[in-house]
């Protein structure tokens, strides 16, 4: 009986697989002309993408190994060719950038996916105001990161924003009654970095950045979660809707409670959705730029700077093109680690 709930899903998948293996048209009907013009009609898009994606990436990689670090173009290769990358990774500032990206990605993913799943589970069952909740949680997804950054920037400004709300709501009045100081975090202006991985792990000497949690990053994480947890919710809601009611009924016949139902059956069944959501949101956070640019910029002591901003700064402000290009190649590499396996897997499924 334990396997019973899953059976329906397997049957459904098998039926879908059978349906999609119908012989393709070109195998049934052969017409040389039509077969030839297919690729021909595709070629404008293919050529454009070949140049704009692969050609330009190749050029960027070349620039990252070149001597081009002024306004004057210089295509000659630097000696040794990895010199720009070597100095990039020895730069404390860039080490901080990478730390910020990883911290941002990890906490953003946990919060956005966790909240999205919680919203979806709560709203999957009949909850009063269901449509209102869904719409409010999803609407930030339709906005620009710049709008999000501008709005949250003022909310998390320590002198003006949410701290005043804390005062108005009497939170500090209560805290003072208990002899505790006022709760007035410095939010995006907080230069502190909490903890240091270097105290726990034997790290190589060239790492100068403090590998802890930059406090100024917290508001940026909250803003990103605000914007994208609705996406995770929508993904999970579609996943839950695809699970047959029979699964729930079979589970409740087996005597499973609500918590067991979700923990033991639903969440494992939702694993493909979880993976897709983590990959899509993960690649967004690894290349994040607009939100940080509009909300906090570099932050105090580069506390919120990410490689996207570093690249923009190096390329367009100080014209060190090779350093900017190298930073962008590092970004591409990080995103590719997540995206390439995903694309390879989805190609196999076709």
């Amino acid at each position: 009986m334990r396997l019973h709930p899953r059976f329906h899903l397997f049957a459904k998948v098998a039926a879908m697989a059978a349906a999609s293996s119908q012989p393709d048209i070109e195998r049934a009907r052969k017409r040389g002309f039509d077969r030839a013009i297919g690729p021909l009609l595709l070629s404008p898009s293919v050529i454009l993408l070949a140049i704009f994606v692969y050609g330009f990436i190749g050029t960027t990689v070349w620039i990252s190994m070149s001597n081009w670090d002024t306004a004057i173009i210089d295509w000659s290769i630097i000696d040794p060719f990895w010199k720009v990358y070597d100095s990039l990774f020895h730069m404390t500032r860039f080490q901080i950038n990478i730390r910020n990206t990883l911290i941002f990605t990890v906490f953003f993913l946990i919060l956005a996916v966790g909240l999205g799943l919680t919203f979806a589970i709560l709203l999957d069952r009949h909850m009063p105001g269901n449509a209102l909740f869904r719409n409010v949680f999803l609407f930030p997804y339709a906005l620009s990161f710049v709008v999000t950054g501008v709005a949250w920037r003022w909310i998390f400004n320590p002198e003006t924003g949410i701290n005043i709300l804390f005062n108005t709501l009497g939170i500090n009045w209560v805290l003072e009654k208990f002899g505790m100081g006022p709760f007035a975090p410095k939010w995006i202006t907080d230069p502190r970095v909490m903890g240091d991985l270097g105290n726990w792990l034997p790290l190589p000497d060239f790492i100068k950045a403090q590998l802890g949690f930059p406090m100024a990053m917290l508001p940026v994480i909250i803003a990103a979660v605000w914007q994208l947890s609705g996406f995770a919710m929508a993904m999970y809601l579609s996943g839950l809707a695809a699970i047959s009611d029979d699964v729930r009924e079979a589970a409740s016949l087996d005597g499973a409670g609500t918590i067991q139902l979700y923990r033991d059956i639903m969440i494992p069944l939702l694993k493909p959705i979880t993976i897709s959501t983590l990959i899509i949101l993960g690649h967004v956070s690894l290349k994040i730029f607009d939100l940080v640019y509009a909300m906090s910029g570099r932050g105090p002591g580069y506390a919120t700077e990410v490689p996207g901003i570093f690249m923009f700064d190096k390329t367009f402000k100080v014209l060190e093109y090779n350093t900017g290009a190298a930073a962008s190649v590092v970004m591409l590499f990080m995103v590719s680690l997540v995206i390439v396996p995903y694309l390879a897997r989805s190609m196999k499924d076709v």
């Binding site: 990436i57 960027t60 390329t315 093109y321 290009a325 190649v329 970004m331 591409l332």
Partner: peptide, 8 residues
């Protein structure tokens, strides 16, 4: 990340 094609 579009930074990686921006200069070219």
């Amino acid at each position: 990340p579009y930074q990686s094609i921006l200069i070219p």
